[in-house]
Design a protein around this nucleic acid. Sequence first.
DNA 1: TTGTAGGCGTTATCAA
DNA 2: TTGATAACGCCTACAA
Lengths: 335, 335
Amino acid sequence: MDKINIKILAKELNLSTSTISRAFNGSSDINKDTKERILSIAREHSFLPNHYASNLRDKKTKTLAVIVPEIANDFFAQAINGIEEVARKHGFYILLYRTDDIFEKEVSFVNYLNNGKADGIIMSVSGEGNDHQYLNNLRQKNIPVVFFDRVYEDIEAATVTTNDYDSSFAATEHLLKSGCRKIAYLVVNKSISIGKTRMQGYVDALAKHKVPFNDELVIDCSNDEKVNTKILTKVLQEIKPDGIFSSVERLAFATYHVCNTLGVSIPNQLKVISFSSLNIAPLLSPALSTITQPAFEMGVKAATLFFEALENKDTNFPKRQHVLKSKLFIRKSAE
Amino acid sequence: MDKINIKILAKELNLSTSTISRAFNGSSDINKDTKERILSIAREHSFLPNHYASNLRDKKTKTLAVIVPEIANDFFAQAINGIEEVARKHGFYILLYRTDDIFEKEVSFVNYLNNGKADGIIMSVSGEGNDHQYLNNLRQKNIPVVFFDRVYEDIEAATVTTNDYDSSFAATEHLLKSGCRKIAYLVVNKSISIGKTRMQGYVDALAKHKVPFNDELVIDCSNDEKVNTKILTKVLQEIKPDGIFSSVERLAFATYHVCNTLGVSIPNQLKVISFSSLNIAPLLSPALSTITQPAFEMGVKAATLFFEALENKDTNFPKRQHVLKSKLFIRKSAE
DNA sequence: TTGTAGGCGTTATCAA
DNA sequence: TTGATAACGCCTACAA
């Protein structure tokens, strides 16, 4: 109720607003006692300098925007944790936004940020759209952008990714060595860079083992669970693959569900490996074989790159490409 | 780069700043053509009014702070999704903060918000500390607070919870009816209100079935996985319960792991039911029996209450207590 | 329908 | 060490 600000505090203490301000900004130009006095009274009023006013002056928001396709997903949740950890150390806070993989949402949020709402952006892109110039606007305003996991190749920015190609190659090769000859590749959006890279590993592993690539085995799924169930049911019934390599955790779960329904036995009739950051993959029935990305570390790295960019504001925009390593865990589902 | 603001735009268009401002605020007091002209030029410059300046004037941030103990957790992730969904409809954005169940972090963030950083707070509390008056400071500034799932009872605020007592009672009763006589109750923090409520359901179900309550069977776990593994190993080896009722998902997973290690068979030797929002609970080995809270809906409800509070600013602070229903799913782990 | 002007709360600069 | 003042960018009475 009783409005409080630096001015009122100043009057109350018989000081000037500048002195009050200094008390809050670690300025050395202030008498220790005065400072104490100010802070103690401020505490009584539970007063803190208004951020919007400070930001308006300083053009610093101490806020980092994080944009992800989904939140209820182990990979992203862990990555966000990593980002938050680093942000916190720098006294930054996280403005979180979820795109649901919808391009328009991504564009609208990025544009919204384009006005001093955040000091930077860490994002995993929706993967849609062709023209991503809206991201370059940010550059003009010195708002660093860091991509993680999912990247736009037409935008120059720091990136944090994993060795997707290698992992995919290794996973596919494992399936081949285990005897699979008809391996389906599950993907959500073929056009997205990450889907392409992972698929290339799959394709090349097939080639190495002289198993012909079959376009029919590339299953383009959707974001809708029910649709996926239908698609996968059809695949398992009609195409009858003997192996599944899923580029997305969600699709592996869907596969499990469909197998349960159809009575397809994993790994006997169908071996499954999936990209997944699920901690409890070993507890599934059967234990899911995974390519596990270092989600938390990726978040940490992305945030670190962001803060580096922030500090070098005048120099060039950072274009560091950071690649972390995923791990392949072969469990029951692919034995 | 080339700085841009309402003034510069005004000069460029030979208009006044007020006219420019009006173009962005759906004001009716503006010529349609003028507006078009302004917006089109603005778009060229990818200009949007600076939020910090607007906020400074309006005292509205269009930002909603969300405070949760953890992010990488299905319950909270889904709840955040629900909150975000509603927030978005109101043109609000989410400032996310994670407390790691550490009281000091909670206090420090809440205090940080106490200065016009957000228009309101939706939180699931850390559950520590005795004095939560720092939350009342917010009330004075008309920053509505909504608790969800985890609540401080000494603070008046709108709350969204689930029928924890009933669910716990039902789950315990199920275990009893299935023949369990030595049911361990797993909890992370006994003092937290939610832990108490859930425990009461457990206690009362025991009483109803004339099974004596045994303090030794209340297992107070930690936030550290390794510690929990140790604790649970000891419990399974020494106390040898025949049922587990876990108030927290995480502890159920830990139980599974320990059972795998020790070769304890679920559900033959040990039946397990847990609070959990895990979508793939049926895919676990064995399928986990859960009390599933409507996480997404809770988020939606919490956000809805928040916006109601926001609109009734002058009237009384809302103290609505909303209770949603959880569902008990008995699966293989408790059959 | 458009313009003028003052102020939102803070801080940096300069002067005392 | 402290104080006065201008400025950050925007919005809204009020005036024209």
